[in-house]
Design a protein around this nucleic acid. Structure first.
Lengths: 202, 202
DNA sequence: GGGCTGACAGATTTCAATATCTGTCAGCTC
DNA sequence: GAGCTGACAGATATTGAAATCTGTCAGCCC
């Protein structure tokens, strides 16, 4: 008898099957075949095919979280930490789009299926931006009276450089220049921004 | 004999057919039927079905251009003109999405088909933003050493509120707050922004 | 003769029959 | 008996034949 079938082994096999056949063709039977078990066994660990795909997506997004820790502690100004962080995120997305379009499309499909997981992912990344902004506020480099709200605004203002719907523009040779322009604009805004609260106005 | 068949009449009929059947089902034969002519006659005015659809798209986008003239000349600061302009654009898109989802989807499809027309459209709107920014620079309200580049940055930073790919988020009750936060951040950035040129850095 | 028609070829879409897949579960195996 | 198998019902996807659509053009009509 082989090793016991674990959820982890199923996830690894599912990733492999998704990579090979793509999200449209990958079936639970394929995953079971790759593991040398009956497909009924897979359902012992994951209630539905959707749950299995969601678990793969979560795994993938968690790996991104690990790579997106902000680069504090090198004496850089907060604007530079923010710029580097956004650049790192952009590079990661852009590279995975240009170098492995099929895998990118696969994950884009998965992401479109499990909105809850993605909301958690976005919330996490916006939280990291908030930490960077807070550091800038602490050193009086940035001005804002609502850090979480401003972090969300930075996220929203840079959608063109991380939201997969904009991926087709990432091949444009001027895209890095456009990125620099937006980040500079945002960074300048952070230095002097006082966002009026939800009802008021400047 | 009826009136002579004009390109204009064909465009009107095509819009009607698209509205009625949607982009997937609308055929050139349907358009001809609505006009009471043979479909061969339509091809006398438009070389292909794609050209016909593109002409409808252009017509629609031109109508938007006419409604998006900036509100200068009321003594408002440039930041307020910009804010009102972006709000007007956002409202227009959001309303057409919530009040007539089918038509919105139709135009989204058409837009996806004719990228050249859309590029012209975006270029026009970014040009309008540039005019607003230039007015702000003239009164020393804004600071930037590259107006067109900054205008593009404002456009890119507000993608979440006009790009159709983000339309599903426009129903979120907090979306207006998110919009205000981004516009405030951008407006603050315009007051103090010096975007480094393509190669340099701050 | 300028503009329109309608028949046509090839491309695309539809539809229904067929095959495959998902999710369940009784029973087998170690 | 904990974990796995494999047969099964209903849901979904595939396929290929038939129908429809696009784009052309010779000829008709005012």
């Amino acid at each position: 008898m082989a090793e016991a079938l674990t959820a982890e082994a199923i996830l690894v096999a599912t990733e492999e099957v998704l990579r090979r056949y793509g999200p449209a063709k990958a079936t639970v039977v394929d995953v079971a075949k790759a593991l040398g078990v009956s497909h009924g066994s897979v359902y012992r660990h994951f209630a539905t095919k959707a749950a299995l795909r969601e678990a793969v997506t979560r795994r993938w997004l968690d790996a991104i979280h690990r790579e997106m820790e902000p680069a504090f502690g090198q004496g850089l100004p907060a604007s530079e930490v923010l710029r580097e962080w956004l650049q790192r995120l952009f590079d990661k997305k852009r590279r995975s789009h240009t170098e492995d379009l099929e895998l990118f499309t696969t994950y884009k499909t998965l992401v479109g299926e499990s909105s809850g997981v993605v909301e958690d992912h976005v919330e996490h990344l916006v939280g990291l931006i908030a930490r960077i902004i807070q550091a800038g506020v602490d050193t009086h480099e940035f001005v804002t009276d609502d850090v979480p709200r401003t972090a969300q605004a930075v996220w929203d203002a840079t959608q063109a450089f991380h939201h997969p719907a904009h991926a087709q523009e990432w091949g444009n040779p001027h895209i890095q220049d456009a990125f620099d322009a937006v980040v500079s604009l945002v960074a300048a805004g952070l230095r002097y921004n006082r966002i009026p609260s939800a009802t008021g106005d400047a």
